[in-house]
Amino acid sequence: MKTILFYIRKLFAVVKNEVLVLPSRVAVIFFFLFILLLPFFTDDVYILRIFTLASIFAIFAASWDLLSGFTGQMNFGHALFFGVGAYGAALLNLHYQIPPWGSIPLGALVGVAAGLIIGIPSLRLKGTYLALTTLAFPIILLGLVFTFPGFTGGELGISGIERLAPTRVQEYYIISVLMLGLCTIMWAITDSNTGIIFHAIREDEIAVRASGVNTTRYKLLAFCLSGFFAGIAGGLYAHFMRIAGPSTLEVSLSFQVVIWAIFGGAATIYGPIGAVFFLYPLVEFMHVLKDYRILMFAFVVLLVLLFMPDGLFRWLREKVEEECPRCKVRNIATRKTCRVCTAPLD
């Protein structure tokens, strides 16, 4: 009993001293609460559907950020991972009757394989060349999908896949909790030593190599991890929509993920997630504007890129938080002195 009380008190202390002091951390708590409590406030199937899809795309956008934002391997064909995850899960479910809890991880493993397949030839490429090569891969696969309609369903895709769960609310919880978990894992990866090396590779690969790091292995690791998470997103999408079609491989999806990541702030993980939860519902709710909604979407994106080139959420964070010049700890912008070393903030 005593130990339990001790840990509860400790938890309170951590929340009070470490979480509540920073607006960004409070925002993350609110985000978690919002996601977990949403079905208590609305049982509108349409709204739940929008946020379920937003969760799927949030995993997808964060996985792009892990590869392109952190490691700097510009991937303009990220839909490949999403597509193979979706098709992999769909085919396994339809032909081998593997239930979703098996087909989605296996689909993600196909994503890992896809990561290796495009990772290995991409090792020698940089910048625009890498971007063009990665752009080509999903288009090639799309061509294959149309060439073998008997196996892949061609234009119509593969339908008749098992539902993830019997009700919308259950599906919402499975996907959103997975999203919160997987995104936390991705954030933890970027915050670890592996993340430091990813970041260092983006800045100067030769210097990393000269420090004794096998950069080839780390670049492939980034491709595989990114393929894994995007593959899970694709598998979830297939089971949620109950169809895996050519739209999961389209160029527009590859660009969509780049827009989300840049809009929210690349190389942050939280930026792309926030951007998806901002832009995806926005575009959906703007459907009253009919054909103008894509125009409005472009307008919003351009506005953000013009005035907040580092991304919306990074910009917001800079506005509400300040870094202490002496000890580099972050503080809420309203404070006059640093909360740790009491140095004056200006």
Binding site: H199, A210, G212
Partner: peptide, 18 residues
Amino acid sequence: RPFKEMTVIDNLMVGAYL
């Protein structure tokens, strides 16, 4: 060739990779 966007300590930690 320091990793310019990274902190000094993170730079040193890349050096300590092995």
